[in-house]
């Protein structure tokens, strides 16, 4: 439900995995070891990093989804790994700031 609102507001495009019903919190940041300790189960993680290690961290942290900002995408091998691990990846043309702002507006 919540995710659908965010998807519509930001025109998120699904690159891998399944659309999660809901999410808990939101973390934005690109350093993997910061994300590792900040992203809790069910959170959205907004980043512009797009290599395979993002999938490993999202999987280990049980993130609800990764949202790639500024139209960043991932190569096919990385997206295949995401599918295999059940990690959901979206992309979005907005900046990290705009994504956070719009999620906040949807939640309020």
């Amino acid at each position: 439900m919540k995710t659908e609102l965010v998807m519509n507001k930001l025109s998120l495009k699904l690159l891998a995995g399944e659309v999660p019903e809901d999410f808990e919190g939101v973390y934005a940041g690109d350093f993997l070891s910061r994300a590792m300790s900040r992203v809790s189960e069910g959170d959205l993680w907004i980043t512009i990093m797009n290599n395979i290690n993002v999938i490993a961290v999202a999987s280990l942290a049980d993130a609800a989804a990764v949202i790639l900002a500024e139209g960043v995408t991932m190569d096919k091998a990385t997206l295949d790994a995401a599918d295999a691990k059940g990690v959901t990846v979206f992309t979005c043309d907005s900046t990290v700031y705009e994504i956070c702002r719009d999620i906040a507006s949807v939640l309020s």
Partner: peptide, 16 residues
């Protein structure tokens, strides 16, 4: 450039 190097790995290991 891959996202490593925040210098948080060892502190995380200690913390958790």
């Amino acid at each position: 450039s891959l996202g490593f190097g925040a210098g948080m790995g060892l502190p995380n290991m200690k913390k958790y």
